[in-house]
């Protein structure tokens, strides 16, 4: 399941559909599990009438978590040493997201084999919603 150094090269990409037609119920599930009950993610009346947004929208950490799902599917469980993102656009109910990892470097540090990845998550219109980086342990 883990990546092997010999099978990787700079420029390789892994792309995965991490959510299809994002439901409002999934936003509620994420609030309940993660603990962020901000009404902006579940409360249409508050979000439209008080906060001034067109409708509720995703937690940034849900978008990051979905991107993390792509990463663990690609590099294996418990192999990330670093994972960081910037949230670049909001994610709305009905969006479908693809998370993409691109190999930037393959290197060795303190006897560990590592891969550095550039991350991008895009919506169905090809618009960036998240950009970031990750480093993962790989097998020799």
């Amino acid at each position: 399941m883990a990546l092997r150094r010999a099978e990787l090269k700079v420029g390789d990409t892994h792309r995965e559909r991490v959510v299809e037609n994002l439901s409002r119920t999934q936003l509620v599930m994420y609030s309940g599990a993660g603990g962020d009950y901000n009404p902006l993610h579940s409360d249409e009346m508050y979000t439209v009438q008080v906060a001034g947004y067109p409708t509720v929208f995703s937690h940034g950490m849900l978008t990051m978590g979905l991107t993390g799902k792509m990463l663990t599917n690609y590099v294996g469980i418990a192999r990330l040493t670093k994972f960081g993102v910037r949230f670049t656009n909001q994610v709305w109910p009905g969006d479908s997201l693809d998370a993409i990892a691109t190999v930037e470097a393959i290197r060795e540090e303190d006897g560990l084999h590592l891969v550095d990845l550039a991350l991008s998550t895009v919506n169905q219109d090809g618009k960036d919603v998240l950009s970031g980086y990750a480093t993962a342990r790989i097998d020799p």
Binding site: N38, P39, L40, Y46, V50, A51, H59, G60, M61, M64, A78, L80, T81, K82, F83, G84, V85, R86, F87
Partner: peptide, 16 residues
């Protein structure tokens, strides 16, 4: 009423 702002960036470093 305030929603406490938005989330701009998040970074993790894992030891285990």
């Amino acid at each position: 009423a305030t929603s406490g702002g938005l989330h701009g960036e998040q970074h993790f470093e894992y030891l285990r």
